[in-house]
Design a protein around this nucleic acid. Structure first.
Lengths: 256, 256
DNA sequence: CGCCTAGTTGATTTAAGTCAATATAGGTGG
DNA sequence: CCACCTATATTGACTTAAATCAACTAGGCG
């Protein structure tokens, strides 16, 4: 299972195989004080000057934006192993907030420390770029999601994305995963109303696409769900040269 | 006005003042062969391996994604001075296409050349990071746009964004700018149908928010439009230490 | 126990989509 | 220079997915 000390190395190793030295370097860069934040608190608020990079080690957080009239949009979920805001110190102020959806644990990594890490190994540098680029790719996919898809597609698509992302860091069990989001969170992420999310979830349950109860989400037939909502995992760029193995499967394959 | 040779330097100088040497280095990196592409052609297709970085020097292009059933979403506009896909060579395949909306001109810049440029001057390196981070910020704003805003707000918000972005590279004239997008392009960018875009534009014209005819968009009262659609330019991160001056205005101010 | 959050349900409204026809403006070839 | 063609824009009639409003239920817990 997941060890808070090495989520980052685990995640980066999805892109490229890291040597023991490199793994150690990554672990060391992320060995700072683990901090905790209760659910519903903000890690950073909009307008704040960005200071350090955060590495989420446990729990779920999100980036969100708020309009003047109170409408809120969750624009990204931050899961264990996710690094926020690499190099964002070049900007003067945050244009969005980061909030904890569940109690979270995180460590702060200084900008200098991270750039030293990146410069010390070109593979680590590339892996960090990979994370950055995938984050943008996910953001583009969310733009598509909110722009083109129906309610059922939006929600189903998100479920698929979260499945792949959690599997990378060992947070799935079989075909399901612990799912802490409320229907309201889902609504804010998908641009729907909570009422409509509720009805859509019922429809997905009724057709057997998902089993969602007691904060556990199970996707009995991932392929079926992917086909139903037109999900294509390419944008997550997981098929890289690193460990291609997806933890829950046994068809291990190494190298290119 | 705009000189194709220095769009990039012009754009980067919005973030930080560049010395003559730095400006020259930027110009030199972008001095490759200028290529041309007619409207409606793809610069890169989804699935292609990314090769070089493109710098758009003239014309409008877009990033777009297509669903299996044909729905299309424009996820970003690429305007003169925009750099596509810095460091994207770490990914194996494009997860979206880039297409020309008008005839465009562009130059290709090799990855190595760009990283040499970035390493040669920390200010240039930071300015390139700034572009990267702003692109993500814009993508987040688009997620919000498609998720939370009404048709009028989406379109109006886009008009404001384009105004600010074009002004940076000297492509506005007074309160307006040349606007080559069709109503269909607008529909694909905002997640609306062309018919609804048409009706919404008429409403915006009727209330005097915009004047749009003969491929020219004029925003007689930018502040009014911004207030109406809840536009806040902070996410474009233009207020940096560089030239704060906005070309069309005379209140020049230098340094911090 | 009572309060708060999260989830559910029903009735109704509405913004936007759909379908289909028509208008208009450039651009091209004869 | 005109006739035609295609892409773009416009209009009207109608449908629909999702929003809205308003109760109401079910847990969890101080």
């Amino acid at each position: 299972m997941l060890n808070a000390d090495n989520v980052l190395a685990q995640k980066l190793s999805y892109f490229t195989r890291l040597s023991p030295d490199e793994t150690a370097a990554v672990d060391q860069a992320a060995d700072g004080l683990t901090r905790a934040l209760p659910a519903k608190r903000d890690l950073i608020r909009e307008g704040d000057p960005p200071h350090a990079v955060f590495l989420i080690t446990a729990g779920w957080a999100c980036r969100y934006k708020t309009l003047a009239d109170g409408r809120r949009q969750i624009v990204a979920f931050l899961l264990p192993g996710d690094l926020c805001d690499v190099n964002n110190h070049v900007l003067r102020a945050m244009d969005h907030a980061i909030g904890a959806l569940t109690p979270i644990q995180y460590v702060e990594i200084g900008h200098d420390r991270l750039s030293t890490l990146a410069q010390g190994s070109s593979r680590i540098g590339q892996a960090l770029w990979w994370r950055m680029l995938v984050n943008v790719a996910v953001q583009r996919e969310w733009t598509l999601n909110n722009g083109q898809r129906s309610a059922l597609e939006r929600i189903g698509h998100l479920f698929c994305e979260l499945y792949y992302r959690l599997r990378c860091v060992g947070l799935t069990s079989g075909t399901g995963y612990a799912f802490p989001l409320t229907q309201n969170d889902l609504a804010e992420a998908t641009g729907l109303t909570p009422v409509h999310v509720n009805r859509t979830l019922q429809e997905m349950r009724a057709t057997g696409l998902i089993v969602l109860k007691e904060r556990m989400l199970d996707i009995p037939d991932l392929e079926l769900l992917e086909d139903t909502v037109l999900f294509n995992p390419d944008y997550l760029h997981l098929q890289e040269e690193g460990r291609r193995v997806l933890p829950e499967r046994s068809d291990a394959r190494i190298g290119r």
